[in-house]
Simulated assay, not measured.
Amino acid sequence: MDTEAVRTFVRAAELGQLRHAADELGVTQQAASKRIAALERELDVRLFDRTARGVEPTLDGQVFLPHARNIVTGADRAVTAIRPGSRALRIDVLGLRSAQAVVLHDYWRSHPGTDLDVVTLRADDPRVVVAAVEAGELDAAFRSVTDPAALPREVRMIHAFGSPLELLVGPRHPLAAARTLTPAQLRKHRIWVPGIVPRSEWSDFYDQLATEFDLRIDAAGPNFGNEVLLDILADSSDVATFVGSRDRYLWPPGHDLRRIPIVNPALVYPLSFMHLRANPHPGLRPVIEHFATLPPLPEPAWLPSWARAPRRDEETPRP
């Protein structure tokens, strides 16, 4: 099996665009298409559906994707074994528009010589990510295990930074004209956060948030992606959602969506950073040190219970 064809499939699946995957891999889009076609012939399945926005893995493609990642990781580790120090620093983020990706991009812009490989595992269960870190498939990941005692001894988890929430609404929403909002002003309003996965870190976060401030957080329905959510918000007079203050969202000008900071207290989603204690990659320490340079959280601030207790492994104390 051609590992470069498998790599092309993985990056196209993660980026959602064959052209973007081709650019990243330094080949033409036609060459990338030929790689995918050859791989589909070898596997005797169709791996992608073509859509108006790009490509999406078929059911067979979704099944093949984690195995394909393992193939690529194995090939990369084989090369690394004979070329020490040549591998990019591989860090997992929840999404390429997430606050984690934005912070890493800002770091890279200020340290342009850094060789970064930013990936998205698309794993809701943090144990899957912990296993990837433990196995050396990732150098680090922006994930939280709400019970640090459940972490393997070889894996360290530290606080990276906090992401204050903003309310995102359309122009017809009754809160659309507000410059700031308090948690009390959000009560009785429907806050739609589709796709909350039970027992995930964000499920725990939203459960505590709803209980603490008596909020109506609705996780009903499947998650059809940010574009669909933004379309619904633009047309709705009663639906809102939460976004992080650093999250990067784009929408058509006609949507006229408003991002409204929440204050007194700020509602803060804590981002943790996990890595192997014995990870020798020289690029890891500077990234960790970068977290301490980020602006402090607004005061007062609310965080979930699992982020308030001091952690044994804290390396970069944050306000």
Rank of each mutant, 00 (worst) to 15 (best):
S200W: 08
Q185D: 13
A149N: 07
N70L: 11
A68G: 02
V268Y: 01
A101S: 12
W302S: 05
P194Y: 03
L96V: 11
R179F: 14
E315Y: 00
A68E: 04
V63P: 01
H290I: 08
M274R: 05
G16E: 07
D204T: 15
V239F: 07
R109V: 12
T58P: 00
Q62Y: 05
A38H: 08
A13N: 04
A81M: 11
P270G: 03
A292E: 15
L297F: 10
P112R: 12
R77D: 12
R172C: 10
V93R: 10
L59F: 14
A37T: 15
R187V: 11
V133A: 00
Y269S: 09
F224C: 05
L186A: 01
G85A: 05
F9V: 03
A240P: 06
L43N: 02
R50E: 11
S98W: 01
E299M: 09
Y269M: 12
I158S: 09
N226T: 13
P194G: 03
L47S: 00
E56D: 08
P152M: 06
E166G: 05
F213R: 02
R11L: 15
S237C: 08
I196N: 07
H111G: 02
D235F: 04
D125A: 08
P222G: 11
G61W: 01
D60F: 13
V169S: 00
G254Q: 14
R35N: 05
Y107I: 08
S200R: 08
L94H: 01
R259G: 12
A292V: 09
R19A: 04
R122S: 09
F161C: 07
L18M: 14
R50W: 01
P265D: 04
S236T: 11
H189S: 13
R246F: 05
V263Y: 06
A178W: 04
A21M: 11
L294M: 08
E4W: 14
R87S: 05
E134S: 12
V27D: 13
R308L: 13
T120A: 09
D44E: 13
S245P: 09
E56P: 00
L233T: 13
L121T: 12
L257E: 06
P317A: 05
D235S: 11
P126C: 07
